[in-house]
Write a protein that binds this DNA or RNA. Structure first.
Length: 122
DNA sequence: GGATTGACGGGAG
DNA sequence: ACTCCCGCCAATC
């Protein structure tokens, strides 16, 4: 088990105020779509807090009802892949929702992004 | 209060 | 594609 992130102490029973806002946004991500940490933060009314969004999700229990797997980084990659089995589970869950990864193991945000990224300036 | 850390993002080389 | 670097914010040590 990875040592608990220092900045994400999940004080059992008590969540840092504001995290629920991230969860609320994540819960709105439709099945079969993905959103980036930055988007979640922005949509939660906290632009620039991408990291906090990540911590909030990290603090979730494995039996959480929040669809944490639908949140990936802005590059279409699963940050968890470098952290162990959780990454595999995330990929598994996403594929189970119909998401196809590209050859490099990334999620084409162009296709599955919840709020699609604006096309690269021409 | 300074240094360190992290499920981040974006740019430069 | 890769790595390195910097900005960002909150919690810890």
């Amino acid at each position: 088990m990875p040592r608990q992130a220092r900045s994400t102490p999940p004080p059992m029973g008590r969540e840092p105020a504001g995290w629920s806002r991230f969860y609320a946004v994540v819960r709105r991500i439709p099945r079969g779509r993905v959103a980036t940490y930055g988007q979640v933060a922005a949509l939660a009314g906290r632009p620039g807090h991408a990291r906090q969004a990540g911590y909030a999700l990290h603090a979730l229990g494995e039996h959480s009802t929040v669809p944490w797997h639908r949140v990936i980084n802005a590059q279409g990659r699963l940050t968890l892949m470098r952290r162990g089995h959780a990454g595999l589970e995330q990929r598994f869950r996403l594929e189970r929702e119909g998401i196809e990864f590209d050859a490099r193991g990334r999620v084409p945000l162009r296709r599955y992004g919840w709020k699609r990224p604006r096309p690269r300036k021409r």
